[in-house]
Design a protein around this nucleic acid. Structure first.
Lengths: 286, 286
DNA sequence: TATGGGTATAACAAAAGGTTATAGGTGATA
DNA sequence: TATCACCTATAACCTTTTGTTATACCCATA
């Protein structure tokens, strides 16, 4: 049985007329006539006595009119409750600014059929993210958690390579690709410690027994791009920063001997919430 | 929203699996998958977290599982109540045996979509029918009520002519039609007084200033046919008796100067019940 | 007896709901 | 780590439902 039929029935019973009710219900009279036949068939009872002057209720119809309304209203109440409980748990995702700028919006946009509000909170450090997860300020976090001790639910989303970002006037800008020896002496602009990019870059330098020479430490990745654009420095950043680079004077060069990749995972305290976030926003759709 | 969706949801929530639930519900897994998407869309909430290992409920789903069952059961209870109140008022129709034999069964059969039990009670006299109407032993009666004083609801169903019924060996059997002068001397077999056929036949004789000559008075119309079939008499009966006459040795001849018609009406004490009976069983369908 | 308001039906178009076939993810296991 | 069993999602297709318009018919009434 359809609740819509019940609504139609109640209107029809009240107006004692299929034609009048059909106007109220914004449908045609034959459509309503069919609906009411369906309802009678479905319930197995005769609800109306139809005549050329309108319809009147049978005794079964009278009962349905009384009790149907209460059923309908409990359905509506339930629906309201469901929606509100869902709204009550609007979701907040914490991550780096780069992800918030270049990745998250697209993912959120790709999930059309959800009905939740998503907030995004950006951080500069692991421990900010972990703290916010622990205190339920955020429901999920996006970062490379391989070097981080935690007991949360986690799910790998994607891996990405690192590139050397240089101004197109830089001496290396002509090259197709670079290796550590090409720039090992050169100071680079880095993100602050506690961010996965910084950790991985340091690991890569260590692996080559090189000591990283830091030109500047900048919290906002966007500012690093500004530095490079002004030819004030170079930097090592993951692939995601290449987006929106087309019309700029910055080049991203593959680093042949940078063996590490960044692996962004979705981390959540509550596994159910994590799975839901994953399913709704990050699962690759065909 | 469809109650069927709710049932499907509950089964799915309980088995935590679309495939398993779909078996229980006797449908295919993709069909159930579609249903649950529809339900989510209709309610505007996410009910499941789907994964390759099955589904789990979101918090909205948990609530729906709890409260949905009670809604479903109240719907089922309501339906039961409706059916039983309708069954409680099974209908009884009173009429002559001829109507019960040649007319009523076809009318009842032609109304396929009702769901009531109809009883038929036969009588030989007006006052039996009226008494049973008054005492609610019958809900409706079929007879020609023009000569009967009553205050009930009434609705004309059809009119029919009278014919002279004779054995095919009878001297009049060769004629295409007859008039009163052809048989005015001949005694006829009649139904007892108090039945509309008898009343109308007497009126017709009176109109011609003839005195009816009664051969036999027989309560059961069927027995009259036996009399004629054995060539023991002739009779004046309405058209309805011509049904099932094909393979018999009885002929029905139009009576050219029999001006009266029988007018069978549906008579009911309660107008609503009358209208319902009319609508369900006697209204001419195109 | 024409007319206006009521319901039912026919014919058709659109939407919903089902089916099979198949893809692709996940976890257990050899 | 390859494979298998099992899960859900999607595509393509067919049938049923549900809506529309046009029209017939019934009935009360002016």
């Amino acid at each position: 049985m359809k609740t819509e039929w019940l609504e139609s029935f109640i209107e029809t019973a009240k107006t004692k007329s299929l034609s009048k009710a059909s106007e109220q219900l914004h449908m045609t009279q034959p459509a309503l006539s069919k609906q009411m036949r369906k309802l009678e068939e479905d319930l197995g009872v005769t609800l109306f006595i139809r005549s050329a002057t309108g319809v009147e209720l049978t005794s079964a119809g009278e009962i349905l009119l009384q009790e149907g309304e209460s059923i309908l209203s409990s359905v509506h109440a339930l629906q309201k409750k469901l929606v509100s409980t869902q709204e009550a748990c609007d979701l907040t995702i914490g991550t780096w600014q780069s992800m918030a700028a270049f990745y998250l919006p697209y993912q959120l946009a790709s999930a059309k059929d959800h009905n939740r509000h998503i907030d995004i909170k950006t951080s500069h450090h692991y421990y900010d993210l972990l703290e916010q997860l622990e205190s339920n300020q955020i429901d999920g976090a996006l970062f490379d958690d391989r070097e981080v001790q935690h007991t949360y639910w986690s799910k790998l989303l994607f891996k990405e390579d690192f590139y050397l970002f240089v101004n197109d006037q830089h001496r290396l800008a002509e090259k197709e690709s670079v290796s550590f020896k090409d720039f090992k002496e050169e100071p680079i602009v880095v993100l602050p410690p506690g961010c996965d990019v910084r950790t991985l870059v340091e690991k890569a330098y260590n692996r080559h027994n090189l000591k990283i020479s830091i030109a500047n430490e900048i919290e906002f990745a966007q500012s690093i791009m500004g530095f490079i654009s002004a030819n004030l420095g170079i930097s090592i950043l993951p692939e995601i920063f290449m987006r929106h680079l087309q019309s700029s004077n910055i080049k991203a060069l593959p680093i042949t001997d940078f063996k590490f990749k960044r692996e962004i995972s979705l981390v959540a305290k509550n596994p159910d919430v994590g799975k839901m976030l994953y399913t709704l926003f990050f699962k690759t759709r065909s």
